[in-house]
């Protein structure tokens, strides 16, 4: 039996939507950009090379825990036996964080799964169970990926500090190049995205029902809530910045481009 907007009790209207605006622009943009990122990230993650150019380590490979090139493993190589690319060991965490993120859920449910493609536009699927069954019920463990994302953000902060170190052939001490700026911008955006997370908002104070008894957590919740309003923006910006930081390292490591040094 036909259900949905063509169901027997609904106003009989043939069109799946009567919207006259360009409602398809947003899901199409999401699809194209995210798909391009997934293709790029997959290639880079499996490549297993051109991920380190002193002092810059690609964020896709950080922390480099496998059999990594000399100088890139700041936290040892506990998985030196790992036969595949070292990126695969760590990318699962930021990937899981973004896949279960409340903003990305909106984006991919609209852009990829068309469920719905846009508001008041009928979806093509006959049945729908949302996030009540496997695998989508796993979106409920977003907070665990958030814990991991905090650790990754700390590691990337360490990398950004190391980006002030000497490049090949430079004297020891503090230096700076265009790559340092790229890494700094990236880590700031990663932190903003991580701290504006809805699970973070819940953990720092949202779960409480008596803010008045927890003034410090209330202040933290208030700050996170303000950032949370821009969570989608940070999701996009940090997606670009992390890809850009990786691309920058690729260009340096492959000798395509040399890092302009400021001092």
């Amino acid at each position: 039996m036909t259900t949905g907007v063509h169901g027997p009790t609904r106003a009989r209207i043939e069109a799946k939507t009567l919207r006259t605006d360009r409602w398809w622009v947003s899901p199409l943009t999401t699809f194209v950009v995210f798909f391009a990122f997934v293709v790029y990230a997959t290639i880079r993650a499996f490549q297993g090379s051109h991920y380190y150019s002193k002092p810059y380590l690609s964020p896709f490979y950080s922390p480099c825990l496998g059999d990594c090139v000399k100088g890139s493993s700041d936290f040892g190589q506990p998985f030196h036996w790992w036969p595949l690319s070292a990126a695969l060991l760590v990318l699962i965490f930021p990937l899981g964080f973004r896949l279960t993120c409340y903003y990305y859920r909106k984006a991919y449910f609209r852009g990829f799964w068309l469920s719905p493609p846009a508001c008041a536009v009928a979806e093509p699927h006959k049945a729908y169970t949302g996030e009540t069954r496997l695998p989508l019920i796993l979106n409920n463990i977003h907070r665990y990926f958030w814990y991991a994302a905090v650790v990754i953000a700390l590691v990337l902060t360490y990398d950004a500090i190391l980006a002030f170190g000497p490049a090949e052939g430079e004297s020891s001490g503090i230096h700076m190049g265009l790559g340092t700026v790229v890494f700094l911008v990236n880590v700031v955006l990663i932190w903003l995205y991580t701290l504006s997370c809805h699970s973070c908002r819940h953990i720092v104070g949202g779960k409480l029902r008596h803010f008045s008894k927890h003034p410090v957590r209330y202040r933290m919740w208030t700050w996170v809530s303000k950032q949370n309003e821009r969570h989608a923006l940070y999701a996009w910006l940090s997606l670009f910045s992390v890809a850009l930081a990786d691309l920058y390292v690729l260009l340096l490591a492959s000798g395509t481009f040399s890092d302009p040094r400021f001092f």
């Binding site: 409340y102 859920r105 909106k106 449910f109 609209r110 469920s115 719905p116 508001c119 008041a120 729908y128 169970t129 949302g130 996030e131 009540t132 989508l136 019920i137 409920n140 907070r143 809805h198 699970s199 908002r201 819940h202 949202g206 779960k207 949370n228 309003e229």
Partner: peptide, 29 residues
């Protein structure tokens, strides 16, 4: 659990209530 956070409720609310961010997602958490 049926809600998949596509935020259309928030988009159409004439009172501008942040239904998804302030009610549904906190309840999911």
């Amino acid at each position: 659990g049926y809600c998949n956070i596509t935020k259309c409720c928030t988009e159409v609310c004439p009172e501008g209530i942040h239904i998804t961010d302030n009610a549904i997602i906190p309840m999911k958490e």
